[in-house]
Amino acid sequence: MEDQPTPEVEALTTDKVRQVLIEKHGLPLSDDDPILMVVTMFAMFQSEYDSTLKKHQAAIEKFMVNSSKHYADKVQQSTDELLNRAVQGTIRNNIEAMSDFKESMRDFTKSNRLYALLSLCSCVASICLFASWLFLRS
């Protein structure tokens, strides 16, 4: 939302009031006419009202800036926490996967050693059979 400049309104003066009253009603006012006191009081109230509005506007802007920063910090903190949880979860999952892989490799190694021992026994048996065949043949 863009700030649009507010149009300047001319201040109400006693001379303007005199001029309007002469134009509309044909009544000239003297300098000590009580109606002009009302104009002066209205101008004072208007000035005080404008001043109060400016103070409130400044307070609202300050509040909005502070609130925006506070909530932006909270969002950043929440995002960081979620990211940390996701990273920690991923690390935990990787550690579990590596542990499972290590267990699988241990089982695979045992199986390979067993097959190697079986192959060695089979090879020794084959050599013994071949040697006994050669011995019996001669």
Rank of each mutant, 00 (worst) to 15 (best):
N94D: 07
T13L: 10
Q77M: 10
S119W: 06
F101M: 09
S68Y: 02
E81H: 14
S126Q: 02
S122E: 12
Q77A: 15
E96S: 14
E8A: 10
D80A: 14
P5E: 08
P34C: 07
M98N: 12
E81V: 12
S47L: 13
F101K: 12
E96N: 11
Q57W: 04
F63A: 12
V87K: 02
I22D: 04
T79Y: 09
L53W: 07
E96F: 03
L36E: 03
E8Q: 08
T6M: 07
R106L: 14
P5H: 02
R106Y: 12
Q46H: 14
D33W: 01
V87H: 01
A58F: 03
L83V: 02
V17Q: 01
L82R: 04
Q4H: 03
K55C: 12
E2H: 02
V38S: 03
L83Q: 07
K74P: 00
C128Q: 05
L53M: 12
A59T: 06
D31R: 05
R113Q: 14
L12Y: 02
T14L: 02
E103W: 01
N94V: 04
D100F: 04
A43K: 08
T6R: 13
D50R: 10
L83P: 00
L120W: 10
C121E: 09
K62C: 08
F108G: 03
R85V: 01
D33C: 04
K69E: 06
N66S: 10
E48N: 10
K16G: 05
M64D: 12
F108R: 14
A59W: 04
A11H: 08
A125G: 05
Q19V: 02
S104V: 00
K110H: 14
E81S: 11
T90E: 06
I127H: 04
I60C: 11
F101A: 09
V65Q: 13
N94I: 07
E61N: 14
L83D: 01
I22S: 04
A11V: 02
S68T: 02
D73R: 05
T6Y: 03
L120Q: 15
E96M: 09
S30N: 05
V20E: 11
V75N: 01
A72M: 06
P7F: 10
Q19M: 07
F63M: 09
R85K: 14
E8W: 03
A43E: 11
I35F: 12
F130M: 15
T109E: 15
I95F: 06
S47E: 15
S126V: 02
D50I: 04
